[in-house]
Design a binder for these strands. Structure first.
Lengths: 212, 212
DNA sequence: GTGAATCGCTACATAGACTGCAGTGAAATG
DNA sequence: CATTTCACTGCAGTCTATGTAGCGATTCAC
C-alpha cells in the first residue's frame, strides 16, 4: 500500500510508477468525484455506497478497498495538510519561539485547506456536511485526535527541554479545539469562507497568547 | 421521552413517577450493567447489541429504544455533568473574572466525573475503552462538541460586553480540547485515575492563562 | 370501577455499512 | 514466455439501526 501523502518527506510529486498504479488512482478519483456530486445532489444520508460505486462504474466492494468507511471519501486528501504542519514544526528555525512555531504550523494547515480544497468546492461541501451530518462530524473529530497526537509528539521533540508530554498535548489540543470550535460556530452562523478563515485565525491568536 | 438529567434545573432526585416509569428505568439499568459486564469480559468490539439485550433479558429492539447507538450505553449519565457546568457559569458571582468562571465550570465537570462514576467502576472502564475504541472515542468527542456550543453560549451570556460569539466558542473549544487531549494522552500512557485528573487540571490551568 | 388512551415492549421485516473469501484478468517481473 | 502480483469482482454473511404492527400492562377520565 503506502500511498502518497504519507510517504516520508515532502508532498509527493506526480509519481506515476506504472500503469496499474495510475489506474488505481483513476478509480479512486472517480469514486471521490462521484461521491461529491451525489452528496451535493441528494445529501449525504440519501446516498448509498452502492450508488457511489455505481456512478464511478466500479463494484461496491471496490469502494471499501480504497476507503475504510463511507465518510473517508470526503477526508481523502487531509493527510497532506498534516504532513505540512509536521514539517513546519520539524523545521523549527534557530531561536524561534514555541508560540511562533505552533502558529506557523497551524497557519500552514489553514492556508492549505483554502488553497487546495476551496477551488474544487470540496472544502465548502465538507464544511457544510461536517456541520450537519453527525457521522461525518464524528469521523472528522476522530481524525483530528490522531493528528493532534502526532503534532504534540513533534512539538515535544522540537522543544524537549521546555515541554513535557502532557503540556504538549494540552497545547495542541487547545489549538485544534479552539480553531475547530470557532470555525464550526462561524459555519453554523452562515459565514462565508473568508469569515470562517478569519475566525480560525482569531482563535489561533487567542490560544497563542497562553504560550509566552 | 424527556428523561432526567436534562430536566430544567437541578440534578433530579430519585423521582419515581409511577410503576411504568420505574420498570423502564430497571430495564435501562439492566442494559447498562449487562453491557458493562460484557465489555469487560470480551472487549467492546466482540460484543453485539443482540448479546447485550439477551443478557438483560429484553428484545434487541428494546436496546435501541433506550439508546440511540451502541456507544451511548456507556455515556448514559453524562448529561448531568453538562448541567453542572452550565449552572456554574450562570451563577457567576459578582465581580468574578472570566477565567475564574470558566475554571470553576470545568472543575465542576472534572470533579463530578470522578465522584459519580468512579465508585461504580464505570469511569475507569469508559476511560479505558474511550482511549482504545475509535467508535467510542468519536461518539464521546461528538458529545463534547454539542456541550461546547451550550457552554460557549452560556459564557457569552455571562460576559456579553467582553466576548463575541467567536471568541466565546474559541475559548470553550480551547478548554475542552486541551483537557480532552491531555486526559487521553495520560490514559494512553497508562496513568492511574489521579494522574489523569491532574493532567486535566494542568491543561485547564494552561489555557486559563490566556484569559487574563 | 370500567372503558379508553397511553406506552414500554416484542416480533418481524428491511436497509445499509462493512468484511471474508474465492476467484479473474490485466499488469509487472525476470 | 512463464510466473507472480494485485486491483477488482461477486457473493454470502454479520451487525447496527429503523419502520411497522400488535400485545399487554399501567394510567387516566368519567
Amino acid at each position: 500500500m503506502h500511498q502518497c501523502g504519507r510517504c516520508n518527506k515532502l508532498p509527493c510529486v506526480v509519481e506515476k510508477r506504472g500503469l496499474r498504479e495510475r489506474k488505481k488512482q483513476r478509480t479512486r478519483q472517480a469514486l471521490i468525484e462521484a461521491a461529491v456530486r451525489l452528496f451535493e445532489d441528494k445529501g449525504y444520508d440519501h446516498v448509498t455506497v452502492a450508488e457511489i460505486a455505481d456512478a464511478a462504474e466500479v463494484s461496491p466492494r471496490t469502494f471499501f478497498l480504497h476507503f475504510q468507511a463511507k465518510e473517508d471519501v470526503l477526508l481523502a486528501n487531509a493527510d497532506v495538510r498534516v504532513d505540512l504542519a509536521l514539517q513546519a514544526i520539524a523545521e523549527r528555525r534557530a531561536g524561534e519561539r514555541l508560540a511562533e512555531v505552533l502558529v506557523r504550523a497551524m497557519d500552514q494547515m489553514i492556508a492549505n485547506t483554502w488553497d487546495s480544497d476551496l477551488p474544487s468546492g470540496l472544502a465548502a461541501l465538507r464544511a457544510r456536511l461536517a456541520a450537519s451530518v453527525p457521522a461525518l462530524q464524528a469521523r472528522l473529530l476522530q481524525r483530528y485526535l490522531t493528528v493532534q497526537a502526532e503534532l504534540a509528539q513533534a512539538l515535544q521533540r522540537a522543544f524537549p527541554d521546555r515541554l513535557d508530554t502532557i503540556t504538549a498535548s494540552a497545547l495542541v489540543g487547545a489549538m485544534v479545539g479552539a480553531i475547530s470550535a470557532s470555525a464550526l460556530t462561524a459555519l453554523q452562523r452562515g459565514d462565508g469562507p473568508d469569515e470562517v478563515r478569519d475566525a480560525m485565525r482569531q482563535a489561533m491568536a487567542l490560544v497563542a497568547q497562553s504560550v509566552t
